[in-house]
Write a protein that binds this DNA or RNA. Structure first.
Length: 452
RNA sequence: GGCGAGGUAGCAAAGUGGUAAUGCACUGGUCUGCAAAACCGGUAUGCGCGGGUUCAAUUCCCGCCCUCGCCUCCA
């Protein structure tokens, strides 16, 4: 299959290091707050890639880290008045819940930064021994100027970069050197040969990638905003330490609002738990997959619900088809495979999905069971590969639907009561009770609940 | 200042040197007691603007305008 590579800025044939195996490292979340749909886009994209590899017979080792120690987490801890580890654990669970709702498969391993200080220290020591890093007063910095290829991923020239304002505050040899280890006074800290401190913000990925995937692996992924400096620094420190590191880099684009990147700091982010009140997890996943992964996806509430409407057409076809026939394993349409193999061209692939649904609906109308079977198996197979077949799609809004039904009957009952036609009113109430509901007339109106 | 992405129908979003996928919305029709669903059809004479190359450009080249991102944390 053809895949983009940020490193070379072109699309090329994917060739795994080891036949029929793929090793992937994807930057996961810094668990400092609730997940928003931008986080989910990246997660869904790499989940899809992973599924596509699996579908094609690859054995995939998929590592997605959790950054559970970081200054922002410490800030949040102060703000929320609870220990940093509780903050990290809490938001990690929120991410896990969100991943599950969107049908994102659990990674092969989900390593936490705090569990890999040993590996980080090893890597840092390695860099110091190789004279690619230096320790000053308890801090350890990577010597960027000694690494000639610096900037290869993001195409940056060192002398053209803007310099962060606090770069002079520390004793770096070179203004662009970045911290591998930081001496800090406040807790938590971990012991190292250079004293107590905390890890710099890039070293964990290099250390954990090496630990779980080895010194050379196939793919490193993450959101586009991680390309520089995070991924650039990862490459520098890993290669300087003698690792061959990732062969290919993939970056997923943003979810935007009014053309602007969605992010917590801009205050325009949409938390997953809020969005899931509007649409189901599968509908949200479908929406996030509706643009090519390297294109910005422009969010609007209308776009989201319209995507849900479209997705619903697909699932309702599946439901109606399955009422008529039993299906076994199907195959994927050739055009679908071609699209997926072409750097995951989801818009084209979804087009094929809709065409197949249309064919299936026609077969359904004409009671052409052979054609129906073909279309149905193909659609189901496509949904499976896309990770869109999780759970009973209809149950998400069940309460809302029941409420609509109940309110209609209750309105009728109120009308009957108003004209003192209590026989009718009571008959209506009995129907609801018989259906398994409890009806209560309260001062503020009638309320219903499911009888336990 | 450097690097990068992008401007395609009401919205979202593909795509190609030969004349614009798909979904939603809208609309005509079939079906239906009426709806809904489904299906058939219609809806960008034009793909930011101006030049150029070419038999032919939305697609290549040049210039311009605009939007956004990264270089500070960020999916």
């Amino acid at each position: 299959m053809q895949l983009y590579n940020t490193l070379t800025r072109d699309v090329s044939e994917f060739i795994p290091i080891e036949a029929s195996k793929v090793s992937m490292y994807v930057c996961g979340a810094t668990v400092q707050g609730n997940p928003h749909i931008g986080h989910m886009r990246a997660a869904v994209v790499f989940d899809l890639l992973r599924r596509w590899f699996s579908h094609n017979g690859f054995e995939v080792r998929f590592v997605r880290n959790v950054t559970d120690i970081d200054d922002k987490i410490l800030h949040t801890a102060v703000h929320e008045n609870r220990p940093w580890f509780e903050v990290a654990a809490h938001y990690e669970r929120e991410f896990t819940n969100a991943y599950n709702a969107l049908g994102i498969l659990p990674p092969s391993v989900e390593p936490r930064a705090t569990g890999h200080i040993t590996q980080m220290v090893e890597l840092i020591q390695d860099l110091i021994d190789r004279d690619m890093a230096y320790e000053i007063d308890g801090d350890v910095y990577f010597a960027v100027d000694k690494y000639a290829a610096y900037g290869e991923l993001s195409n940056q020239k060192l002398d053209q970069l803007m310099v962060s304002e606090d770069s002079a505050e520390r004793n770096k040899h070179f203004k662009h050197d970045f911290a591998l280890w930081k001496k800090v006074e406040d807790q938590p800290t971990w012991p190292t040969p250079w004293g107590e401190g905390r890890p710099g913000w890039h070293i964990e990925c290099s250390a954990m990638a090496r630990f779980y995937l080895g010194k050379k692996f196939d793919i490193h992924g993450g959101g586009l905003d991680l390309a520089f400096p995070h991924h650039e620094n990862e490459i520098a420190q890993s290669k300087a330490a003698g690792d061959n590191f990732a062969q290919r880099w993939l970056h997923s684009a943003w979810v935007t609002q009014s053309g602007e990147k969605m992010s917590k700091s801009l205050g325009n982010s949409l938390q997953v738990q809020e969005v899931l009140k509007l649409v189901s997890g599968m509908e949200l996943r479908y929406y996030l997959l509706s643009a090519h992964y390297r294109s910005m996806l422009e969010y609007s509430p209308a776009a989201l619900t319209e995507a849900a409407t479209g997705f619903n057409r697909i699932t309702s076809f599946v439901s109606r088809g399955q009422e008529l026939i039993e299906v076994s394993d199907g195959s994927l349409p050739k055009d679908f495979i071609t699209a997926m193999d072409d750097d995951l061209n989801l818009p084209i692939a979804l087009g094929v999905l809709y065409e197949t649904v249309r064919r299936g609906n026609t077969a359904l109308a004409e009671n052409d069971l052979d054609s129906l079977r073909l279309a149905l198996t193909e659609v189901i197979e496509m949904l499976n590969v896309l990770g869109l077949s999780q759970g009973a799609i209809a149950t998400e809004n069940t309460h809302q639907i029941i409420d609509g039904l109940v309110q209609a009957l209750l309105t009728e009952r109120e009308a009957a009561r108003a004209r003192k036609d209590f026989a009718t009113a009571d008959a209506l109430r009995d129907k609801l009770i018989a259906a398994g509901l409890t009806i209560e007339d309260t001062a503020t109106g009638v309320r219903w609940s499911i009888t336990r």
